[in-house]
Design a protein around this nucleic acid. Sequence first.
DNA 1: TCGACTTTGTGCAGCGCTTCACAAAGGCAC
DNA 2: GTGCCTTTGTGAAGCGCTGCACAAAGTCGA
Lengths: 231, 231
Amino acid sequence: MIRRIPQARERGIPDATVARLPLYLRALNGLAERGTATVSSEDLALAAGVNSAKLRKDLSHLGSYGTRGVGYDVQYLIYQISRELGLTQDWAVAIVGVGNLGRALANYGGFVSRGFRVAGLLDADPAVVGDHIAGLTVEHSDGLEAVIRKRGVSIVVIATPAAAAQQVCDRVIGAGVTSILNFAPVVLTVPDGVDVRKVDLSIELQILAFHEQRKINGGPLMAEDWAGEAG
Amino acid sequence: MIRRIPQARERGIPDATVARLPLYLRALNGLAERGTATVSSEDLALAAGVNSAKLRKDLSHLGSYGTRGVGYDVQYLIYQISRELGLTQDWAVAIVGVGNLGRALANYGGFVSRGFRVAGLLDADPAVVGDHIAGLTVEHSDGLEAVIRKRGVSIVVIATPAAAAQQVCDRVIGAGVTSILNFAPVVLTVPDGVDVRKVDLSIELQILAFHEQRKINGGPLMAEDWAGEAG
DNA sequence: TCGACTTTGTGCAGCGCTTCACAAAGGCAC
DNA sequence: GTGCCTTTGTGAAGCGCTGCACAAAGTCGA
């Protein structure tokens, strides 16, 4: 069978590459702040914490933006990566669930500086509605659909308790949202065409614990001190 | 050249598998709460959001804990995964940086319920020192090394501003810590033998923006409206 | 203008993870 | 006991990502 030869500029950037582009972007912004005009793949890779071959291959998926013998123009590369990620446009984000995490997210500087604008804070708890956080007033989540439609929200952050997450998810999808960032510790069920990314703070700690345990005693305790039925 | 044949119980669990074990654990806990005694790989996979072949292969790396024709004993599997992840022991965690995010983490229920105990909250800002959060008193970060040593802290969460992160990192490593969870938006430099895991809230949003852009107009705007020198 | 030097962009081999498909293994009905 | 049915555990193929190594391409000094 004949397989199609992938075109160079065909819109098919590997997921692994997309996941690293924000890393490069941050490293480049750091360089730009220090007034660096051009940077080699070697130096940029060092700043981003990857190896240089990988960096070059990643960037080659976007196009041929470097100059052999010189490196990459910092400003130009910032622009190209931003454009590829869609950060040259303005994204309206709504945060649902204004607990500790929701507040932290609303105040997080990393959003506004990258093309994201918090366009709404919503919560179901009347005791929280009306609070002023990061320049916004918390609204009741009854108005979720209205907020999404009126303010052109295209990305929703779910920071509610686990029990409420699926319902919120269904409602925002009903209102037309197709990109969701989920902090609640549940697996969300969504129709095709909707992207969900999940961040789970405790999972990361558990992975660390796994490796830490191995450092200490070479693996789980071997004693089968299990008192249940199987054994 | 002759390659070693990997032993079944050899301590070499793929990283991809380790990253999914916490997912299975959560799904299992959900089933246990509902009183389910046994579960098939098909049903558990559904609850965890993966496919069943992957689940079975993952579990097979831990051992042979299922019963053919029946499935897995929920309680027994919870115990085995917990043991493998090292959650049957008690981990003392210190959180450095008590801003919005640090507070959210200190109050996050997902920690305590999984073998993690917040043993210290530290911050460099005198205005924050002395605050009571989640039953603890915030201490000054001058005492970082002392807290780590005295309370047996083995995992440190860095939730400081980017500028302070590397310095905190160096200090905790100096105090003997080899597992770090980093929320600051910088690439930490650490010696061999130290594990760093990174969580970056804005990166996830940027990845979502990338996919959202593609849904809207099939990719980045093609107009090369760049006004810089290269072009 | 030319040659030496630097750095990019990429073909290719290797590796690890995913997925399929099925034989082996255990339970259950009779 | 025996045979059928369900479900696990796993060999093997497929796929995508990584990293090496180098030719191509561009700069810079003389």
